[in-house]
Every structure is written in C-alpha cells, then in structure tokens.
Design a protein around this nucleic acid. Structure first.
Lengths: 183, 183
DNA sequence: GAAGATTGACAAATCAATCTTA
DNA sequence: TAAGATTGATTTGTCAATCTTC
C-alpha cells in the first residue's frame, strides 16, 4: 500500500508470497534493495567508465591497485588476491590492458615462475582520471542521496554482515567455518 | 586504524587513495560494503539452491513468478519484464526448465506470436521448496545480523536510492532523465 | 511497422587442466 | 609437491539480427 511496496517488486518471486505475512515491509524492502540496487549502480558506472575512458570496473580495479603501490609493479597472483578476481580473469584482463599499453608484463627477476604487471605512465594517468570519474559518480548516485546517520548505519551494518559472511582471513586458520566470502 | 578499515579493502583501488582524506571512514565502508556484500550473498545462495534443488536464482525467479499468478501461466515477455532478465535469457532458461519438466511451453490461444510458460505440478512443488530454502538463507545471512532499526534505515535508504536511480516507470514519460535502472 | 520469440555472436567471470619453475 | 601463470570449456548474461504474427 505504501511506497515501500514499490521496491518489493521482484522479491516475492524468489522468497514466495509467504513473506508478505511473515516478514515486515521493512525487511522485504531492505533485502530487495540490497539485491537490486548494486547491479544497477555497477552497470551505470561501468557504462560511464567505458564511455569516458574505455575501461571496465575490473580493469580499473587492477590499474588502481597497481597505482597504489610503490613502483607500480605487482605479480598477477597478488593482483588477483587484492581485487578478488580469479587469477585466470586477471591474466586475460592484463592481456587487454597490455594491448593498450597501459601495463607491461615483465618477468620477475627473483622468481622465474612469476610475471609482474608494470603500470606504464599512460596507465597511471588513465587510472587517476578514471578514479576521479568514478568518485564523482559514487558521490552523485550514492552519497548525495543519504544523510550522515544513514551512512553510519549502513557502514556498521555492512561491517557486521561482512564479519558474518567471512569469519576467515583472520589469524586463526582453524575456526574457518565456511565463510561466504572464502575462496 | 579501527575495524572499519578492514572492510575498506578493495575500495581504494577503484576510487583512489584520495578518498582516505576526502571521504569519512563511514562513507568508504558504506560504499565498499554495498558493492562487496551482495555478490557474496548471491554466490552463496546460488550454491545452496544448486545443492538442494539444482536451481539458480534466475530459475527460481521465473518459477516463483509463475507460482504467484493464477493458473501459473505467463508469456515469456511478461516473465522477462517481471524478473528484469532479458527476453533472450528467459527463453533459454525456460529451455532448461522445460527439459526438466518444471514448465511447459504452450502456445497462447489468443495470440499466435506469444508463447506461454505453464508451471507443472513438479515445478510448483520445487518452487515452493526452493523459496523456503532461500527464505531461511536470507534470514540466516542477512536479517539475523541486523536489528530492527538497522533494517528500517536500510529500507528507507534503499528506497531513496531506488527512486534516485529510476525516476521513470512513473506516469510522466517526459521527465525521464536517464534513470540508472531504465531499459 | 511493432510485438513476441528465438537464435547467434559476444562479454565477463569461474573452474579445471596444463605447463613451468621453486 | 606446491606456486605462478596460461589456456580451454562452461556459465550467465547482453545485444543484434531474424522470423512470425499482430
């Protein structure tokens, strides 16, 4: 009846009509928003990045990671771990970036198995510019729509969800327990 | 320094180191959580659905939509609109579901162009069971981690983001303005 | 011509298998 | 044997072209 129902559109198809009596309107709206909003933002930001810099978010993740370290060099496995992409994906995205002279593959001196990706000057430039583009998009599409309290609540809620989902990555290699974000 | 930094992991690669001075820790954590949490949950729920019912979320979306209407019949275009999938994807997912006797394609009596998907008894059964599985997963991974206030804040924040992102679908076909969720 | 559906080509990502070197 | 990297196959999705019927 209220506006909340508008955002509850698709959720019933996944969870069943039962939730209309079992869950509150807020619970439904919170879950449906969490599942529906990010893909739309991702798509929009990908589009924008593509239009202004011919980059995808994955590419920018790799370039940005390289830009953040001294000398702008990292092994592909490190890049995969840092960005959360699979190593095979990293290898292929680096293929593309290398073709565009944004990075160079250089063999690692100390380890003949390893390959380092070295950011070029053009790559560093593009990364900086693309990051600025993305920052303003995030401000426009996300931050500007929320007040300070909401941002704080989101932050703490997500932090808890993150801990809930990924109890690993911590010190104890024992208490793993099938985290959602585990590899 | 605080635990908030833990969830700020990947975000810098996309937005640049600048955000560490320009944005608050909460802003960073809120954005990074929004982008990182949903894919993990989706993956986990897909795995669970696959393991217990050999279904993906997309399949369940279609089955669930069919289960929600009288007679459990809908045209493929309607299914596409309702679930947000492209029509071509719907057509191919229906191929799979039909192969497993969960739905049947039946030509629409009134319109020779249209094809209806008719849920079978087995399909309805499976949809109900899979929805129950997903409900408990969402309770476990999402609702149980949040208190009532947080859920309410998320709901209202997402609602606003949704409105911000998709100002269309409303009455006025004029004031469109490039909505993020527009087709 | 436009709507409904299908099909082919492509994009992004994962997983499994393989090759090389530690 | 395990780690790093690459490659091939597969999944999930889009878009563009096509065919049929309105």
């Amino acid at each position: 009846m209220t506006a909340l129902n508008d955002t509850t559109g698709r959720i019933g198809y996944f969870l069943g009509d039962v939730i209309e009596s079992e869950w509150t309107a807020e619970q439904r709206a919170a879950w449906s928003g969490l599942m529906d909003i990010p893909p739309g933002l991702r798509r929009e930001h990908n589009r924008e990045l593509e239009a202004s810099h011919r980059l995808t978010l994955s590419m920018l993740g790799l370039l940005g990671r390289l830009a953040s370290v001294a000398d702008h060099v990292l092994g592909l496995s490190d890049l995969a771990r840092a960005t959360g992409l699979s190593l095979s994906r990293v290898s292929r995205v680096i293929d593309v970036l290398e073709g565009r002279k944004l990075v160079e593959r250089v063999r690692c001196p100390g380890d003949a198995r390893a390959v380092n990706a070295q950011l070029t000057d053009a790559g560093l430039d593009l990364a900086r510019n693309a990051q600025a583009t993305l920052r303003s998009a995030v401000r426009r599409d996300f931050l500007s729509a929320l007040d300070e309290t909401e941002v704080a609540v989101l932050a703490s809620a997500f932090e808890r969800l993150f801990a809930h989902a990924a109890p690993c990555e911590s010190a104890e290699p024992d208490a793993a327990g099938a985290g959602l974000l585990a590899e």
